[in-house]
Every structure is written in structure tokens, then in C-alpha cells.
Nucleic acid binder design. Structure first.
Lengths: 164, 164
DNA sequence: AATAAGATTCAGTGTTGCTTGAACATACTG
DNA sequence: CAGTATGTTCAAGCAACACTGAATCTTATT
């Protein structure tokens, strides 16, 4: 049973929960997903205590998970003048860092295969050919996806410039 | 300790293990990763018993995991004439189905956000705007990635046509 | 139809990793 | 410098899941 009462309107709380469930299948913890969902639907950045109270979770979990989400480029910190608490918010342009993380993983996997020693599988030509084809596909997709992200960057800079 | 001895050359076994470890961080089980790695480095399709023997795992796990990997579009079945065992192999052009799965997940997440009720977060315009921007980015990226995959399809059909 | 080979499901066990309260560290504030 | 607010780390409990041997189901073969 939850220790504290959540203070969210039910429809919002429900959406937060659906987002959390989704994120759980993406390798995040349940609470990590809740934090993300909550911040996504918050009009302001939130403090650790605020999140803990809202989500009915311990401050320990919130601290651990927020930093983990920050490391993964999902959240960022935001200070408030005259307040030394840490506030978190979802990064702007969220899908981009998310996707870049994904590309990184693909790159790492590519590298893993590329470094396969020549005598792998007793040097079977079938295997070697298969690996070569996979690497070729990754090269193509990584390049295409990378430049799509690049174009998005340029395009969104025009629409909402962060600096003049 | 392992029950059975693996029969792989050490360098191959080690690479299988590294691949398995990588897949573990992608939401697969360790054994699922091993199966994938083993098949990736196998010159022929393998039976459940073959995999079980090679990986030192129970046939039960192998059966469960192979079907799970099949459902996710990573493996496919391959029969051999005069043999009613089930053989598994890594799908050809692996990165493509993998990536398509990924796009599906993005689409589902998009839809989740798109279906957010209008009064979410007390109808905060900040939140509404943020969601709109995220959806816009997803629309763009999904379209770009989709057409990149499309181009790859056309390109690889030229190189290695499956049907004439 | 009986048998057997093969695949799948199931119930139990062990391991992993999430979550937490409490202890600890750090840095403001007066 | 003492006291307090805030954030982080730690050890332990617990829930969830992976893995297994055994039982069960399916289907080919005689």
C-alpha cells in the first residue's frame, strides 16, 4: 500500500502510470518511469521532495532514479533563485537525446561485431559473410538516422532558437 | 557451475558471451542473448537440443527463449527435409526487423501521448505545448527513419534478390 | 492404434535487482 | 561555528523473474 497520498488529478495520475509501465519495458525501473511521466506532465520543474510526495516513493529512490535519468539524457536540472533545492525537468526536444542514445547502442553493437576475430566460428565463410552483411546494414542505417537527426537539429533551431 | 561442457572454441564462446551480456541490457534474458549470439556465429541453423548442449542450458529455457526471440523477429525457424526437429537461425538482414520493432515502440509511445486527454495537468498550456512539440519531433523522426528503411529495402533487393 | 521423438508447459527454486528507512555527507544560514 | 536543510549512500527486505527437471502435449512413424 502507498504510504502517502498522491495529489494528482486521477486522469493525470493514470497517464503517468501508463507511461511508467511503458518505460518499464524499456529498461527503466517502475519508479524511474513514474518520475519521467510525472515531469512530462508537470508545468514546472519539480524537487525531489515534490516528486517523492506526488509519487508516494521514498526520497532515496527518487534521488537515485533522477540521477540515472539525468545521466541518460532524459532529465536535466533546473535551479530556482533563492532556493538551493535541486529541481528536475524533462529535457527539451526529448525524442532527440533518446534517439541518440539508441544510436549509440547500435554503434556499440556494431563495433562488437566488427571486432570479431577472423577465426570466429572456425573461420566459416558463411558466418563471416553474415557478419559483413549485418555491419553493412548498420553502417547504412546509422548514417541515415544520424543525418535525419542532424536535419531535425537544423530545422528546430530555426523554429525555436535557443540563442540568437 | 555449468552442468554440461560447451563444445565451442574459446574465442567464439567468449564472443557469444559478450553478445549475451550486451543483449541483457536490452531487455533480453541472459540465455536469450546466448542463443542469439550462438546462432549468429553458427554456419548452420541449430536445433533445440543442439543449442541446449552448446550453451549448457536446459531445453526448457531454450524452448521458451527461442520462441520469444522468434516473436520479436530476431530468429526464424528453418526445417530440414526428413527431420521433424525445429531448427532456428538468425533472420537475414537482422538490423532491419530489429529497427522496425524499435520504430513500432516509438509509434506506440507517440500514440500514448497523442491520446492524452485535453484536461491533462489541469489543462496547463505549458504541458500541452510540450506534448505537441514532442509529437512533432516523433512524427518527423518516424517518417525519416521509415523512409530510410524503405530505401534500404529497395537497395538490398537489388544486391541480393530473394525472388527473381 | 501404439510407440516414440520432439516440443512445450508447469511448479518449484534460486538469484537478481528494486525499493526503502536510516545513517551519512554536504553545504547553506544565522 | 552551530544548527539545519538537502541530497546521497548503505544494508536489508522483498518481489519479480529466470532457470530447471519433470510432467504433459503433439505429431510423425510403424
Amino acid at each position: 500500500m502507498p504510504r502517502r497520498e498522491a495529489t494528482l488529478q486521477p486522469s493525470t495520475a493514470q497517464l503517468v502510470e501508463r507511461i511508467a509501465l511503458f518505460f518499464e519495458t524499456e529498461g527503466f525501473s517502475r519508479i524511474g518511469g513514474r518520475i519521467f511521466g510525472r515531469l512530462l506532465l508537470s508545468s514546472t520543474a519539480m524537487s525531489l521532495d515534490g516528486l517523492a510526495a506526488d509519487l508516494g516513493a521514498s526520497k532515496a529512490s527518487i534521488s537515485t532514479e533522477t540521477r540515472s535519468l539525468e545521466r541518460r539524457g532524459i532529465l536535466e536540472r533546473a535551479g530556482k533563485p533563492g532556493d538551493r533545492r535541486v529541481y528536475y525537468q524533462v529535457v527539451p526536444d526529448l525524442p532527440v537525446p533518446t534517439m541518440e542514445l539508441r544510436l549509440d547502442r547500435m554503434r556499440r553493437f556494431s563495433r562488437l561485431l566488427a571486432e570479431a576475430p577472423g577465426d570466429v566460428a572456425e573461420g566459416s565463410p558463411v558466418v563471416r559473410r553474415r557478419l559483413e552483411e549485418i555491419l553493412e546494414a548498420y553502417r547504412y542505417l546509422l548514417a541515415e538516422f544520424g543525418s535525419a537527426l542532424e536535419r531535425w537539429h537544423r530545422r528546430s533551431r530555426k523554429t525555436s532558437p535557443k540563442y540568437s
